[in-house]
């Protein structure tokens, strides 16, 4: 690692630590408050503007959420859609980004133009729905994965990363008899671990947080992902909002405010746990080692 021993360097390092730690505290405190709030009572949430440890610990909000029979199943749906969906995303994105990173490919600019144009002009909700319907994807998990199989934004950035990889390796592989698939598989992908990790994370978080696609395309409640269920849990607990439309003879009022916070905790913590596993790939360069070997 690089070391800086001058006074200026030390001051900089100190400042750097202080600023970053302050920033980290600012970003995480509200989240801690949400977690703490999810274990508190509604009364405490109303009376204290901010706290990290609740005075009375209450599990009511979690009991209410987990009493929902669909929650565990929907968690399974979300995990499934996130994993398979991310694989689909990565497959489509990588296979398309690689040829497009080759400057000598005929028609490359036209395809890229097509991709960029599609970022700026969209047909809107109804036409897209018609396509999904026409393909027979309605009410299948594919409807949650295929219509967003490639993010043009991610594709272009991956393409750009591929372009930056040293060409010597590729040539060496070709001399060894690899075809294009081999070059992608043996050279590009292993060298792009940070990129694979980054975009897997982007796609995975996208799938995890998505509820609009499910609301539009999935009719069977047993196929709804977690986020849809959590939204409904919140909506149901806020009786004031739904009062005009929902007439539930058996309505038992849940702690509305803490339920809101607990749904955030339930919806966020599983995907947050993914990050540390992927993180090692962003922080370490892989290029050096592989170039040498």
């Amino acid at each position: 690692m690089r070391k800086w021993n001058s006074t200026g360097g030390k001051i900089f390092d100190c400042l750097n630590y202080v600023i970053l730690i302050l920033f980290a505290v600012c970003t995480v405190l509200p989240f801690i408050y949400i977690i703490a709030g999810s274990f508190a009572t509604d009364a405490e949430l109303r009376s204290r503007a901010f706290f990290i440890i609740p005075k009375t610990i209450s599990m009511d909000a979690y009991e209410y959420i987990f009493s929902n029979g669909s929650l565990v199943r929907s968690l399974g749906v979300s995990v499934y859609v996130t994993i398979i969906g991310t694989l689909v995303n990565m497959f489509f994105t990588m296979t398309m980004a690689y040829p497009l990173s080759r400057r000598d490919l005929r028609g490359r600019n036209k395809i890229l133009g097509l991709v960029i144009f599609s970022m700026l002009f969209g047909g809107g909700m109804i036409p897209t729905y018609m396509v999904v319907k026409g393909l027979g994807l309605l009410d299948t998990y594919w409807a949650l994965m295929i219509p967003g199989a490639i993010s043009a934004f991610n594709l272009i950035i991956v393409k750009n990363f591929f372009q930056e990889l040293p060409k010597e390796l590729e040539d060496a592989a070709r001399i060894d008899g690899c075809n294009e698939l081999g070059v992608l598989w043996r050279i590009y992908l292993p060298l792009s671990k940070p990129i694979l990790a980054t975009f897997s994370l982007f796609y995975a978080v996208g799938h995890w947080n998505d509820f609009t696609a499910a609301l539009l395309y999935i009719n069977s409640p047993e196929k709804w992902p977690l986020q849809v269920i959590l939204r409904q849990v919140v909506a149901l607990s806020q009786n004031v909002v739904a009062a005009g439309d929902r007439l539930d003879p058996n309505f038992v009022e849940p702690p509305a405010q803490t339920v809101k916070m607990a749904t955030i905790a339930v919806g966020t913590v599983p995907i947050l746990l993914v990050y540390p596993f992927l993180q090692k790939y962003f922080t370490k360069g892989v290029l050096l080692g592989s170039v040498k070997s």
């Binding site: 909700m125 109804i126 729905y129 609301l215 539009l216 009719n219 939204r231 409904q232 909506a235 439309d245």
Partner: peptide, 16 residues
């Protein structure tokens, strides 16, 4: 149709 998305689904149903 989930209440959350009912207005959208209403339009889509008319369109379909």
């Amino acid at each position: 149709t989930p209440n959350d998305t009912y207005p959208d689904k209403f339009s889509i149903t008319l369109a379909s």
